Simulated scan of single mutants.
Amino acid sequence: MRAGLLNRRVVLLTREVQRDAANELIGEWGQVAVTRASIRNTSGMSAIKAGAELAIVKASVRLRFRRDVTAGMRVQHGSDYYVVEAVLPDEMRREHVDLVCRLLSPKEV
């Protein structure tokens, strides 16, 4: 895989559950890795949810081959956050991993 195609710096985030001083469970997003990626918006549509119009943006994020990425993780690029819906590894050549993602709205972040 050519390095020039991976022209975005992204942060991979995973949900970490910890306990606070009152022994309550709190969930926070912890950093797994900082890596280079290619981001392509594949589709966009709008839907009506709870009486409000909502834009849904799907994206494909490609990064170098790694095994520690799972569905449910998040990808941060600047101020944009994507939720990973599916992980599609290149098992044949083991060069890259494609992530099927959805752009999160500011309310979901």
Results as ranks from 00 to 15, higher is better:
Gly44Ile: 03
Gly44Ala: 12
Gly44Tyr: 01
Gly44Phe: 02
Met45Gly: 13
Ser46Asp: 12
Ser46Asn: 13
Ser46Lys: 10
Ala47Asp: 14
Ala47Pro: 02
Ala47Trp: 06
Ile48Thr: 15
Ile48Gly: 10
Ile48Lys: 10
Ile48Arg: 12
Lys49Ala: 11
Lys49Arg: 13
Lys49Cys: 06
Lys49Val: 14
Ala50Gln: 15
Ala50Glu: 15
Ala50His: 13
Ala50Ser: 13
Ala50Arg: 15
Ala50Gly: 08
Ala50Leu: 14
Ala50Thr: 12
Gly51Tyr: 01
Gly51Leu: 07
Gly51Ile: 04
Gly51Glu: 09
Ala52Asp: 14
Ala52Asn: 12
Glu53Gln: 15
Glu53Thr: 15
Glu53Ile: 12
Glu53Pro: 11
Leu54Cys: 12
Leu54His: 14
Leu54Pro: 03
Leu54Met: 14
Ala55Tyr: 09
Ile56Asn: 08
Val57Tyr: 03
Val57Glu: 02
Val57Ser: 06
Val57Phe: 01
Val57Pro: 00
Lys58Glu: 15
Lys58Pro: 08
Lys58Ile: 07
Ala59Met: 04
Ala59Val: 02
Ala59Ser: 15
Ala59Gly: 08
Ser60Arg: 11
Val61Glu: 05
Val61Tyr: 05
Val61Ala: 07
Arg62Cys: 01
Leu63Thr: 10
Leu63Gln: 07
Leu63Met: 09
Leu63Asn: 08
Arg64Pro: 00
Arg64Val: 09
Arg64Gly: 07
Arg64Ala: 08
Phe65Glu: 00
Phe65Gly: 00
Phe65Thr: 00
Phe65Met: 02
Phe65Trp: 13
Phe65Asn: 02
Arg66Asn: 05
Arg66Tyr: 00
Arg67Pro: 01
Arg67His: 05
Arg67Leu: 06
Asp68Ala: 04
Asp68Gly: 02
Asp68Met: 04
Asp68Ile: 03
Asp68Ser: 10
Asp68Gln: 11
Asp68Glu: 11
Val69His: 01
Val69Ser: 07
Val69Lys: 05
Val69Met: 05
Thr70Ala: 13
Thr70Ser: 10
Thr70Trp: 04
Ala71Ser: 11
Ala71Pro: 04
Ala71Tyr: 02
Ala71Gln: 06
Ala71Glu: 09
Gly72Met: 08
Gly72Lys: 07
Gly72Tyr: 05
Gly72Trp: 07
Gly72Leu: 08
Gly72Ile: 05
Gly72Val: 05
Met73Phe: 10
Met73Arg: 06
